[in-house]
Design a protein around this nucleic acid. Structure first.
Length: 370
DNA sequence: AAAGCGGGGGC
DNA sequence: GCCCCAGCTTT
């Protein structure tokens, strides 16, 4: 007996989340943008960034015509920067062919659109009866059917289960709502910890609940330990207080984004003399800042230290000079932390913008660092 | 099949 | 501190 699509849709009509991209009815550009931003990223993090992105790039044609530097700046801080590179390439492909394809196969062929996003856009923007398998749907399906096989091996089985539920006539009548109902069930009731089974429209037929193992599903393969890596970065300020930034290589970690010049990141720490070989200009009075900036990546923990110097007038070196507030906006989070470290040490001519604090605040003194 | 790829929030 | 998040691409 299938879990009732009709029961789930009735629950959805009463309890669905009000999300801004759900007001963009059948606009594939806005729905696609939301889906890409939501890849491994929470609704709370995406919401303000989705609005801001659309203010700057209201149409897919406008996004396609924009320079990469503008797209990178708009994506800075959101993470997984290959998404931004693929987003830009996808916008150009869509513009060239005169609009979004309306089938799973057509969408799947575009840059940055995998099995999940192709199904999500097809279902939500074009009402195709396909179920995208995301973390929510994995959780709901594995619990309802008490699937104990661990991920990722169980993924094909879970996808087939969810797609089978779509075969009911109530789901076929409202494919976009049915998949979003599955998302909302997973996000608000069938949560990773402490699922609210008593409120669930599917509690009666849930085999995981019956067996008392729902909260422990889906099972997952154990994850590898994260090593620590070290890097030394260079904060070079010119006579106007601007900072030297460089564009990172187009692929790899933080690919295509701006950053402070620095050493490679490796598991062995760096001696200062050794690091100086990577300085933008070696023959300057580089001074170490006390402390370090830490940043957690998915697969390693990074500890960065900072050397600072003042650039002589008319210095010529590769890179761009950015005023600190604009730099903080354009940098990925890991690099932003270095600016925060420098500000804390009083090494910046102007403060790095931060969340507003109550009450008046003493300005960092302008001029020579203490 | 496994690894590389960010950042933030909840507990 | 650990886990998870509307995953995709490359090897």
């Amino acid at each position: 007996m299938l879990p009732s699509a009709s029961d789930l849709l009735a629950w959805y009509d009463r309890h669905r989340r009000r999300l801004p991209w759900r007001e963009a009815l059948r606009d594939p550009y806005r729905i696609w943008l939301s889906e890409v931003m939501l890849q491994q990223t929470t609704v709370a993090a995406v919401t303000p960034r989705w609005r801001r992105f659309l203010d700057r790039f209201p149409t897919v044609e406008g996004l396609a015509a924009a320079p990469w530097e503008a797209v990178a700046e708009e994506w800075a801080g959101l993470g997984y920067y290959a998404r931004a590179r693929n987003l830009h390439a996808c916008a150009q492909a869509v513009t060239a062919r005169g609009g979004f394809p309306d089938t799973v196969e057509g969408l799947r062929a575009l840059p940055g659109i995998g099995a999940y996003t192709a199904a999500a856009v097809a279902a939500i923007a074009f009402d195709r009866p396909v179920v995208p398998l995301d973390g929510n749907v994995e959780r709901v399906t594995s619990r309802v059917k008490a699937v104990e096989e661990p991920l990722p091996a169980a993924r094909p089985r879970l996808a087939a289960l969810a797609q089978g539920w779509m075969s009911q006539s109530a789901a076929q009548a409202r494919p976009a709502d049915f998949v979003q109902a599955l998302f909302d069930l997973g996000a608000t009731i069938c949560t990773p910890r402490n699922p609210a089974c008593a409120l669930c429209p599917w509690q009666a037929g849930c085999e995981g609940r019956k067996a008392g193992i729902a909260a422990s599903l889906p099972r997952k393969a154990p994850r590898a330990a994260r090593p620590t890596k070290f890097g030394v970065h260079f904060l070079l300020r010119d006579d106007e207080g601007r900072l030297l930034l460089r564009r990172r290589p187009p692929t790899g970690l933080l690919g295509g984004m701006l950053g402070l010049p620095g050493t490679p990141w490796r598991e062995e720490s760096w001696a200062e003399e050794e690091a100086l070989a990577f300085a933008p200009v070696a023959a300057l009075d580089w001074r170490p800042l006390p402390g370090e900036a830490k940043h957690g990546f998915t697969h390693f923990e990074l500890r960065m230290s900072l050397l600072t110097a003042t650039a002589p007038p008319a210095l010529r070196t590769e890179g761009e000079w950015w005023p600190p507030p604009a730099a903080a906006q354009a940098l990925p989070g890991a690099m932003r932390r270095l600016l925060t470290l420098a500000e804390g040490a009083g090494a910046m001519a102007s403060p790095v913008p931060r969340a507003p604090r109550p009450g008046p605040r003493k300005r960092t003194q302008t001029g020579r660092p203490a």
